[in-house]
């Protein structure tokens, strides 16, 4: 027989451990936000003590004002949100359709192609960056002013190469395999085309995996650094991570760096919180099945 007291103690211990773990994850964020409010000298002094995590001393929003002066912050944020948003949406459409074709439609070479696709998961992006750059420099584009050559300095070169990727297709393939096959067969017997089955049956049942794929894709895209650095020379097309460079040129101002980082973290947190519920549901469900 366990007394109520012992049970309460156990619960308290469990929460204490959870709070501690949560704090470990939250501290860097708190440090970032607090530091963004302090002048450089105080920031460096505080960083050796717990004061680094507290809004004490000379607190102001000066760093933010300075950050906006040093770099076109809104341009970078706008670019990142645009590139990330468009890529995430297109990626969900293309990769889910690919997953659908791999799982539900019977066609020759299906398994071989899926194996090749999955093999691309082990290739780091850095290995294909240079060949991709050479291709991008020579691709034709049909714009309003006729055919032009080269995709450098544009949004599209930051979007198109990342729409389809093995990992996202793989996520959809795994999820679709767990959907009851009889639902698809029932829809086929009822006369639905593959497109209708995709749109009316499979997609409405794919909420959790869409959220998961969206979050993973969002993080990858929002954190892009190497590729945009290679393909954009014009400030107008650069995303937030490339923008970080502006704060390390000439004299490094840590307060401004922290202010800039705080600003660009906001969209990520907002997006994550928005999809959090589905994301956890999806991870939990795959855990049960796996």
């Amino acid at each position: 027989m366990i007394s109520a007291d012992t049970q309460g103690l156990r619960l308290a211990t469990r929460y204490a451990v959870l709070v501690l773990i949560a704090l470990i994850f939250v501290f860097p964020l708190v440090f970032m936000v607090m530091s963004s409010l302090k002048p450089d000298q105080q920031l460096l002094q505080d960083s050796g003590s717990l004061r680094a995590f507290l809004p004490v001393g000379d607190i102001s929003l000066d760093n933010y004002a300075a950050a906006f002066q040093r770099a076109p912050v809104w341009t970078f944020v706008f670019n990142s949100v645009l590139i990330t948003g468009v890529t995430v949406v297109l990626s969900l459409v293309v990769c889910s359709a690919a997953g659908f074709a791999f799982v539900f439609v019977r066609w020759k070479g299906r398994e071989t192609l899926l194996a090749i696709l999955l093999a691309t998961l082990i290739l780091p992006f850095e290995t294909i960056a240079i060949p991709l750059l050479l291709m991008a420099a020579n691709l034709p584009w049909l714009g309003l002013d006729g055919i032009s050559w080269g995709w450098m300095n544009s949004y599209r070169i930051q979007i198109v190469p990342f729409i389809a990727d093995g990992l996202t297709v793989f996520l959809f393939v795994q999820y679709f395999k767990d959907l009851p096959g009889e639902l698809i067969e029932a829809a086929r017997v009822e006369g639905a085309s593959w497109a209708q089955i995709y749109r009316k049956v499979v997609m409405p049942l794919s909420g959790p995996i869409l959220a998961t794929a969206a979050i993973l894709k969002f993080l990858v895209m929002y954190n892009q650094y190497l590729w945009p650095l290679m393909v954009t020379q014009e400030e107008g097309y650069r995303p937030v991570m490339v923008g970080l460079q502006y704060f390390f040129q000439l004299n490094v101002a840590w307060g401004e760096v922290m202010a800039y980082l705080s600003l660009i973290t906001v969209p990520v947190l907002a997006f994550y919180l928005y999809l959090q519920k589905s994301f956890i549901a999806s991870i939990a469900s795959t855990g049960v099945k796996g």
Partner: peptide
């Protein structure tokens, strides 16, 4: 012919009704 063009309807063991 694909299932839809055979003029058949089917009832499955698992019912296969759309949950959404």
């Amino acid at each position: 012919l694909p299932p839809a063009q055979r003029g058949v309807a089917m009832v499955f063991q698992s019912y296969a009704i759309f949950p959404h």
